[in-house]
Design a binder for these strands. Structure first.
Length: 205
DNA sequence: ACCCAGGGTCATA
DNA sequence: TATGACCATGGG
């Protein structure tokens, strides 16, 4: 995949805070829609923890509306930002231990395993492998993991086989997503698929 | 008109 | 503990 697609240089975002916001907004949502929401926040000069926590909910909802689930996400964004400020902002998070921080993030309403791990890996550069729906589908269809496997099992498949290297985990997960985005409905040339002749993304390929 | 998208939470049996 | 409902916009 690296040869086929090249380095991905994820996460798209200018700061750890922006990455954190993007990780929440992209839940079950096309990234294009998230870009619109982040553009709105930037244009309104609202992309900071202080302005988001201090914002009236209806206004915040309107700004992030294109990212979908906007009522849930507006409330969850404020929760995450309050936590962010309580931890001392980006420097505070960077100083925190990975395991403790993961538990704290998971305790927040609206932060599940993938969002927590995305923040840890892509915003804070921790060697945590992110599992998403693409990873689950692809590796299950390749027969490398079981369809029954939960998040911890999937994560263990990677972390038990790879060195705990944040740059490696970053690139690997980003390539999986890139591959999935290129799947056969978009580019029906399966002979060019770097994962093999039988497309591991689309069932009907 | 239908399907899906870089999930997560909550109510029910 | 295991499903199912719900959240909501935008592009293919």
């Amino acid at each position: 995949m690296l040869e086929a697609y090249g380095p991905q240089r994820w996460w798209p975002g200018d700061s750890p805070f922006e990455i954190m916001v993007g990780a929440l907004l992209t839940q079950n949502t096309n990234w294009r829609n998230v870009e619109k929401a982040i553009t709105n926040l930037k244009a309104a000069d609202m992309l900071s923890a202080d302005s988001i926590t201090g914002c009236e909910l209806p206004r915040l909802e309107a700004l992030i509306r294109p990212s979908g689930y906007f009522r849930q996400k507006a409330a969850r964004l404020q929760i995450l930002c309050r936590f962010f400020l309580g931890q001392g902002g980006t420097p505070g998070l960077q100083a925190a231990g990975t395991d403790v921080l993961r538990h704290q993030l998971l305790a927040l309403n609206g932060i599940g395993p993938e969002t927590a791990d995305s923040i840890l890996l892509y915003a804070l550069d921790r060697p945590v492998f992110v599992i998403d729906a693409y990873t689950r589908r692809i590796f299950s269809r390749l027969g490398l993991t079981g369809p029954e496997d939960g998040y911890p099992e999937l994560q263990g498949y990677f972390t038990s086989r790879l060195p705990a290297d944040a740059a490696l985990f970053n690139e690997y997960h980003a390539l999986i997503v890139q591959h999935a985005k290129q799947h056969c409905r978009v580019r029906p040339d399966c002979t060019a698929c770097p994962l093999g002749q039988i497309c591991p993304v689309s069932q009907s390929c």
